[in-house]
Simulated scan of single mutants.
Amino acid sequence: MKKTLALWAALTAVALFATGCAVADADTPAAPNAASVTPSSGDKASGAATPDQRAAAYAKWGLKPLPEPPAPPAKKPVTRAVGGPVPVVSDIATRDKVVFLTIDDGAEKDPEFVAMMRDLKVPVTMFLTDAAIRSDYRYFAPLVAQGHGVANHTLTHPNLRALSPEAQRREICGQQDKLAAEYGKRPRLFRPPYGNWNESTRAAAARCGVDAIVLWRESMQIKNMQYQRGDKKLHPGDIILAHFRGPSELKGTTMTEMTANLLRHIEEQGFTVARLEDYL
Rank of each mutant, 00 (worst) to 15 (best):
residue 132 A to Q: 01
residue 105 D to H: 07
residue 170 R to A: 15
residue 226 Q to Y: 12
residue 179 L to R: 03
residue 259 T to M: 10
residue 205 A to K: 05
residue 198 N to D: 15
residue 184 G to K: 06
residue 183 Y to L: 06
residue 205 A to D: 10
residue 129 T to W: 03
residue 227 Y to R: 09
residue 29 P to M: 04
residue 14 V to P: 00
residue 51 P to R: 08
residue 168 Q to K: 14
residue 114 V to Q: 00
residue 259 T to E: 05
residue 157 H to G: 02
residue 157 H to E: 05
residue 29 P to A: 00
residue 212 A to H: 07
residue 80 R to I: 15
residue 7 L to T: 12
residue 74 A to M: 05
residue 136 D to H: 13
residue 64 K to G: 04
residue 51 P to I: 07
residue 130 D to C: 04
residue 207 R to I: 12
residue 2 K to S: 12
residue 14 V to W: 12
residue 185 K to E: 12
residue 238 D to T: 12
residue 181 A to T: 03
residue 67 P to T: 04
residue 99 V to C: 03
residue 61 W to A: 08
residue 71 A to E: 13
residue 279 Y to H: 00
residue 245 R to H: 10
residue 275 R to I: 07
residue 257 E to C: 03
residue 94 T to Q: 06
residue 225 M to S: 08
residue 12 T to V: 08
residue 22 A to I: 11
residue 44 K to E: 01
residue 255 M to K: 05
residue 197 W to P: 06
residue 6 A to K: 15
residue 256 T to W: 04
residue 224 N to D: 11
residue 95 R to S: 15
residue 233 K to H: 07
residue 150 V to R: 04
residue 154 T to W: 09
residue 272 T to F: 04
residue 209 G to H: 06
residue 163 L to S: 09
residue 133 I to K: 02
residue 112 E to S: 13
residue 172 I to N: 05
residue 104 D to E: 13
residue 132 A to E: 04
residue 269 Q to S: 15
residue 36 S to V: 14
residue 104 D to V: 03
residue 191 R to S: 13
residue 100 F to H: 07
residue 86 V to I: 11
residue 159 N to T: 04
residue 233 K to W: 05
residue 53 Q to V: 14
residue 72 P to M: 09
residue 234 L to R: 05
residue 11 L to R: 11
residue 263 L to C: 01
residue 203 A to E: 15
residue 276 L to T: 09
residue 131 A to V: 13
residue 98 V to E: 07
residue 146 Q to L: 15
residue 181 A to F: 00
residue 132 A to V: 11
residue 120 L to M: 05
residue 215 L to E: 14
residue 241 L to H: 10
residue 235 H to A: 06
residue 212 A to L: 01
residue 117 M to A: 13
residue 89 V to G: 05
residue 231 D to F: 00
residue 214 V to A: 03
residue 215 L to A: 10
residue 17 F to G: 11
residue 160 L to H: 02
residue 205 A to M: 02
residue 161 R to G: 11
residue 245 R to T: 11
residue 206 A to D: 14
residue 264 R to M: 01
residue 187 P to Q: 07
residue 120 L to I: 02
residue 252 G to D: 11
residue 249 E to R: 10
residue 33 N to G: 03
residue 132 A to K: 00
residue 4 T to K: 11
residue 137 Y to I: 06
residue 8 W to F: 15
residue 13 A to Y: 10
residue 268 E to W: 06
residue 207 R to E: 15
residue 30 A to V: 09
residue 62 G to M: 02
residue 83 G to E: 05
residue 153 H to W: 04
residue 70 P to R: 08
residue 272 T to Y: 06
residue 91 D to N: 15
residue 181 A to H: 05
residue 122 V to D: 00
residue 196 N to L: 14
